[in-house]
Amino acid sequence: MPRAVTVLRLAALALLVGFLVTPQSFAPLFAPLTQYGAPPIYDQGNLLTLALAQLATVCLAAVASSIVAVALGILVTRPSGAQFLPLSRTLVNIGQTFPPVAVLAVAVPLVGFGEKPTLIALFAYGLLPIFENTLVGLRTCPPAVLEAASGMGMSARQRLLSVELPLAMPLILEGIRLSLVINVGTATIGSTVAAKGLGEVIIAGLLSSNTAFILQGGLLTGLMAILLYDGLATLERRLLRPVTLD
């Protein structure tokens, strides 16, 4: 089973890289999907550049939202920020009912077209899963462990850094992964507000009824999302010890 997964993973990666570097070699596969001699492979831009641009946007937004969300999560779980806790938990619940498209649409009038509204929408929407998981992670640290940490003479800062955050880390990373995957998807919609990315390919396909474009755009984004999620999960398993809390 694990070997099959590894093979699948490598195959997916090879497919993604191969397609991005030499898209034309896949042309025969997509040709049957086109009509009236339309190009089977997206020809209005470089697929590799688009994919990298989308990845950059997604990662930039994810880094920003991770920093802000984790910092906020820490803040409201400290005694000094405790008064903000009930509100912030409700906000997380409400925030999740906002569709990403709506966030994107509302960002446009604020900053205009291009990468910026996409970045803002991805940042704002990416905050939620990370913040929520940080909160859950920090609030579900076993009380006995926290009591022991204080009882042994850790300062509040030492306790946070060497006990609470490490214990919450698996959940926080899970939140970051989740927000990255959502962001890869949302970033494709960003192409409707002129952000650079693979969404451009899909939109071009929709506008010219070229199924080949839609399919390759969707395939590449999907592959990117899955590989990103899976890659981070693997990295996480390598870096973190298994922790069971009960």
Partner: peptide, 15 residues
């Protein structure tokens, strides 16, 4: 507290 040992129910080991 660093000079006082402290043991609690459920031991509170760092998992």
């Amino acid at each position: 507290r660093r000079h006082i040992g402290y043991v609690i129910q459920g031991n509170g080991l760092f998992p």
